[in-house]
């Protein structure tokens, strides 16, 4: 990354390779990685397919872009597509390092036109973009997934619930056939109690975590998790927008949950605020 004073004209000539075809009359576009609080900046050739990434400033905000054709990036090749997405992610990381928290854009958002079109768009949405940047300033997104092992929790439920422990004791004295039927009944009741307990805990954890975060979003989709969490069940998955100075407190809180028997917490971040960046029309 290098800062440059040469201006946008030079950057445009550098990106000729990325914008092949512009000269032949195809429409010109700007691929947008993020919007930042910042000024003119040249990131070098770190973009998708090695494109030169630079900023287009308007007042104190700027769009991080590369110059391209006004056509979506498309490929049938999965590895190539994954590569592009990772390059997109890398540019967002670089922009965050350079300017602090950014408004991250989704993959393949392209504005039709040149630098002036982007500047025009920035100026039209200036108030809102500035507000959004302020909202995420000095904050990052963290992802929290809380898992549990069913076995210790079932055992706890069984020993603490007098009705269930009595049923279990009764079963020991029954004949084999009757005992089988009652065992199934007991299993169902234990499962029911465990799921009640889980939703109670999810609420409890959620509200503790919420106190440390500016905003919390519950992930509806079951997240894809690393291998070592596969055999565990999910209690709750959250994305949180957290102030930098609160991350340590949040970490300590998660330690408490993590140390409970049967529970495991996965805490990842900092991410750019993907779940919290909003853009009204």
């Amino acid at each position: 990354m290098k800062e440059t004073k040469a201006g946008i004209e030079r950057q445009e000539s550098e990106t000729e390779a990325c914008a092949k075809g512009v000269a032949e009359g195809s429409a010109e576009g700007r691929y947008i990685y993020s919007v930042v609080t910042g000024s003119e900046f040249d990131f070098g050739n770190i973009g998708i397919k090695g494109c030169s990434v630079y900023t287009i400033p308007y007042k104190e905000i700027a769009a991080v872009v590369h110059s391209c054709l006004a056509e979506p990036y498309d490929t049938e090749n999965d590895d190539e597509a994954k590569g592009w997405v990772l390059e997109h992610s890398y540019v967002i990381d670089c922009a965050t390092n350079a300017f602090g928290t950014v408004l991250p854009f989704s993959f393949d958002v392209i504005i039709k036109g040149g630098n002036e079109a982007v500047r025009g768009w920035l100026s039209q949405n200036y108030d809102h973009l500035r507000e959004e940047l302020y909202r995420v300033k000095d904050r990052s997104e963290y992802s929290i997934q809380i898992f549990f092992d069913e076995k210790p929790l079932s055992e706890a439920v069984l020993s603490q619930n007098p009705e269930l422990s009595k049923l279990k004791a009764d079963i020991d004295t029954m004949s084999k056939g009757t005992a089988y039927l009652y065992l199934r009944k007991l299993d169902l009741k234990v499962k029911e109690e465990v799921s009640k307990e889980i939703s109670k805990l999810a609420e409890e954890f959620g509200s503790c975590i919420g106190e440390q975060a500016d905003e919390v979003k519950v992930e509806r989709k079951v997240p894809k998790v690393p291998e070592n969490y596969r055999d565990k069940k999910l209690v709750v998955a959250l994305n949180c927008l957290v102030r930098d100075e609160k991350v340590e407190t949040l970490g300590n809180l998660l330690d408490d949950i993590n140390s409970r028997e049967g529970f495991a917490v996965r805490f990842t971040g900092p991410w750019a605020p993907f779940s919290f960046a909003r853009l009204k029309r």
Partner: peptide, 8 residues
């Protein structure tokens, strides 16, 4: 995140 979230 990059395909499903972020500003559109």
């Amino acid at each position: 995140r990059i395909l499903n979230k972020g500003v559109i």
